[in-house]
């Protein structure tokens, strides 16, 4: 044994660029094959010789087929090949879920956001990745396709551990299907060691509204356990409440009490716990502010259209 021999370039493997999804899935059945989406996680690993493979199936020609948004009343289906950058333009999602643009802004730097994809990030399953946190929060159905079958898997059954998933080698994530409350606002906050880096601790939350009352809420936090986790019972405390300072304090303290973060070289347990509390507080404020802003804009636009009518 000796130190890892970190390389400059990858070891040899083959390259395939199928023109159709079907072809791609057939190719993926081969031994040691990997899909190549943005390459922003896969190729670094290959350069460093952390991963060794037989071949890649480049998805660039099938990408356009996997860039779609299908919006139904309470559901949103997003193609897996959207790039982080594309998802950061919330107009793409028709304003349905601004959480995507909030989260995307925290991923890496411009070059990575332009290239890396939602599906790639979900498949890579870095526990500190922004999309893994967002998926933990929204718990979508992942639409998985292989040459043999197409199946749906809820995200909570998909993520098995840090960089471990229930995805088979030949399976492609084609889309994520999210159920969205009719009216919801979101918060996303993060502290990293340097802007654009993976989070030390990050929080994503959603608040569903019944007029100005909280109908439903979900909270997810990364960096306090091996993979991001949710807080169902704390979230339930918010239901039927009105946003208030007291509520924020309550949730913050409940979260601080509930997390049991690890200590590692990057940060100690107490600091991670503290961040979890602070970030939940900030994220709640974002979600509440967005609600009151939305209220104001709605009021304004009503006023305006009425004005036009007269």
């Amino acid at each position: 044994m000796h130190c890892e021999v970190f390389g400059l370039y990858p070891y040899p493997f083959d390259y395939f660029r199928p023109n159709t999804l079907e072809e791609a899935l057939v190719l993926a059945q081969g031994d040691g094959m990997k899909f190549l989406a943005g390459g922003q996680s896969l190729v670094p690993l290959l350069n460093l010789h952390v991963a060794e493979i037989k071949g890649v199936v480049d998805l660039q020609h099938v990408a356009s087929a996997l860039k779609f948004v299908q919006s139904q009343q309470d559901r949103l289906r997003l193609g897996a090949l959207w790039t982080h950058d594309e998802l950061s333009h919330s107009s793409l999602l028709g304003g349905r879920c601004p959480l995507f643009s909030q989260a995307a802004a925290f991923i890496g730097h411009p070059r990575i956001r332009r290239r890396g994809t939602l599906g790639g990030s979900i498949a890579h399953a870095d526990p500190l990745a922004e999309w893994i946190l967002v998926m933990t929060l929204l718990d979508p159905q992942l639409i998985l396709a292989s040459a043999k079958e197409e199946r749906q898997l809820p995200f909570h059954d998909y993520l098995l551990g840090p960089m471990m998933t229930a995805l088979s080698d030949d399976e492609l994530i084609t889309a994520v299907e999210i159920s969205l409350p009719e009216k919801a606002t979101y918060g996303f906050t993060e502290v990293s060691r340097r802007p654009g880096d993976y989070a030390l601790v990050a929080t994503a939350l959603s608040v569903g509204w019944d007029r100005d009352r909280i109908a439903q809420a979900d909270i997810a936090i990364s960096g306090v356990s091996d993979v991001p986790r949710t807080f169902p019972s704390i979230s339930r405390d918010m239901c039927q409440e009105y946003p208030s300072h007291g509520l924020v304090e309550h949730i913050k303290h409940a979260v601080e009490a509930a997390v049991d973060p690890p200590s590692d070289v990057l940060a100690g347990a107490s600091y991670r716990r503290h961040l979890a509390g602070i970030l939940v507080e900030k994220a709640l404020h974002q979600a509440f502010d967005e609600m009151s802003n939305a209220g104001e804009t709605a009021a304004k636009s009503i006023g305006k259209s009425e004005g036009e009518r007269t």
Partner: peptide
């Protein structure tokens, strides 16, 4: 760096800056 992190290998591909070290 070989990780797509430092930017020294960036070239323009169809006008977009890409890290050539992590581009096949």
């Amino acid at each position: 760096c070989g990780e797509g992190a430092c930017g020294s290998c960036v070239v323009l591909v169809d006008g977009n800056p890409l890290a050539s070290c992590i581009t096949l």
